[in-house]
Structures are given as C-alpha cells and as structure tokens.
Nucleic acid binder design. Sequence first.
DNA 1: CCTAATCCCTACTGAAACGCTCGGGTTTCC
DNA 2: GGAAACCCGAGCGTTTCAGTAGGGATTAGG
Lengths: 151, 151
Amino acid sequence: MRVTTRGRYAVMAMFDLACRRSAEPVPLKQIAEHQGLSERYLEQLMAPLRRAGLVQSMRGAQGGYTLGRPAAAISVGDILRVVEGPISPVACVTDPLACARTDGCVTRGIWSRLRDRMVDLLDSITLADLCQEAASEALTRGVDGHARSLS
Amino acid sequence: MRVTTRGRYAVMAMFDLACRRSAEPVPLKQIAEHQGLSERYLEQLMAPLRRAGLVQSMRGAQGGYTLGRPAAAISVGDILRVVEGPISPVACVTDPLACARTDGCVTRGIWSRLRDRMVDLLDSITLADLCQEAASEALTRGVDGHARSLS
DNA sequence: CCTAATCCCTACTGAAACGCTCGGGTTTCC
DNA sequence: GGAAACCCGAGCGTTTCAGTAGGGATTAGG
C-alpha cells in the first residue's frame, strides 16, 4: 500500500516548479538539486508529465520546464495518475477483468470505497494549496522559532 | 499504491470464517476451496493472524480455525496491519528515520493526511459489517434477479 | 496403537517491480 | 561552434511478490 518514489518525486518536482512563480523555464538540474533527487531519474518522470500536458518543456540552452496549467488546476491526483497509473488499491476495482469473482465479491466493496476516499483527497489537493501551505509554514516557523506539529 | 494478495486473501479468509457462525473450527482446506485460494499460501497468512490473536487454531484431526474475537471487534485494518505491516502510503509517515528531510517537507503532509483517511475507513469496517452486507446483498440479488450497483 | 486429518515451520524459487545508472542523441542560445 | 539543456532507450542490481515444496507436530477416531 505504498506510493513509489516515482509518485513522490514527481509531486516534489511539480511542487518545486509551482513555487517559483517565474515565467522563465526552470532547468531540471535546479529542481533535482533543490529537492535532493537524482537528475537522471527525475528526467524519466518528466517525460510522461510532459506528454500529459502537466508541464511544458523548452529545449536547448536556457531551456527547462514550466507548469502546463495554473498551479490551482493541477492536483496531486493528476500527477500520481500520470506517473503511477490509476489510483487504486487493487487492480479489480479499475479493471473488472483482473479478477474472476468481481461480481458478488464482498471484499471488492472495501477496496472500492477505499479507492474513492483516496481519490477524493488526492484530487482535492492542488499545487497551489501546497505552495500556500509551505509559505504559511515558513512564516510560523520563522516566528515561533521551530514550531512542529505532533501526531 | 496497491494492497498485496497477502492483505486481500487474509481479509477474504477472515470474512469466510466470520460468516460461518459455528463454534466448530473450520479447516483451512475448506476456506481455501470456498474462496478459491491456494491452501498452502493461505497457511502462511494464518500464522501471523494467529500470533496476533485474530484467529485461534485447533490442531489435529477435526481441527481448524475460529475467530479469536467477535466479528464486530475485528476490523479490516486490523487484518491488514498484521499481514502487511503498518497502513501507510510512504515509509516516512510511520518511521521518521526513513527520510532525511522529514521536517519541513511539504509533501509529507499529503501522505500523512492520506494515511489518516485510509486508516479511518479501514478501521471502521468490521467483519460483522461485511457479513451483514453479504447477507443483504444476497437477499436483493435473490429478489431482483440480478441487481448490480453501477459506479 | 495406528492412521488420517490437520495445523505448524522453514526454505526455496521464478517472475516482476523498484530505483536507479548509463550512453548516447537532438535542439537551442550565445 | 560549443555548451546547456531536454530527449530516448537500454541495462542492472536489489527487493518484493506470489506462491511451491518438504517436511514435522498434534489430535480424533477406529
């Protein structure tokens, strides 16, 4: 029940990209360094993101990436679906052919409900939300010294 | 972001066990056949379930398994945690040591919230709920002919 | 006592996925 | 022309997945 590094890194990169409100394209190298990720690996994640229209790329020197849509119009769910495939705890929820006993399988209802919850949340969080969160957190951190939330 | 077969099969087996309201222990062979699972594989899943007290076992001829607690006191989350480890979309949510940048990582908040949602739901569904669901579904199916819910 | 049924334990294994690295190629600005 | 960047596909070591296999221990019934 884990999100892979593909999903996590992609969200981190997109978040990084969203926070810089510059029209200038940002080179991957900067993002990778800033987020502490392998540039070469991250490169592989950008390809599907570009094909899906979540980012735009400029080639050549002074090139880089920009968001393909406003940050408020890109959700975490959007990103995850692109790099990890459908958000679903089990295959049979999205693809009924994946399991012979789809019909009348009681446990299927569990995974279906779980999927709905996950999708609801992930689609409700946009990159704009994350940027705002980061900004306000940086503020309270600066004021309080080192505020932390305990779980 | 998938539940493995360990989790799915364990829930299926526990559900099967919960539906038979007999005090007699149920042999694994029956459960496996009834649910269409490999007996040998299922056997491996029962070991941790037994150690966790979710089932009790009787050895020898006429032996088998019974629930270790009332069906209403066993949640899907309980079962998953036993056979799959902590319910968490990323390691750093349960184990802060798993990631260097735990503090001040914005994306971590996403996974934390996702985790909470998942846990909430999975802990709210008990085996008793599933049995009731199965019973009422079998009823409507019998009356309506072949009722299905569309997503 | 013997035997069949049943749970129990450990090891192994083929296949797939994960998490990258690597070697190139192409485009574009200066 | 050269450096900076994106682009593409291959390969690779490790881990996990999803079982299979081979026994051993325990118990009811005959």
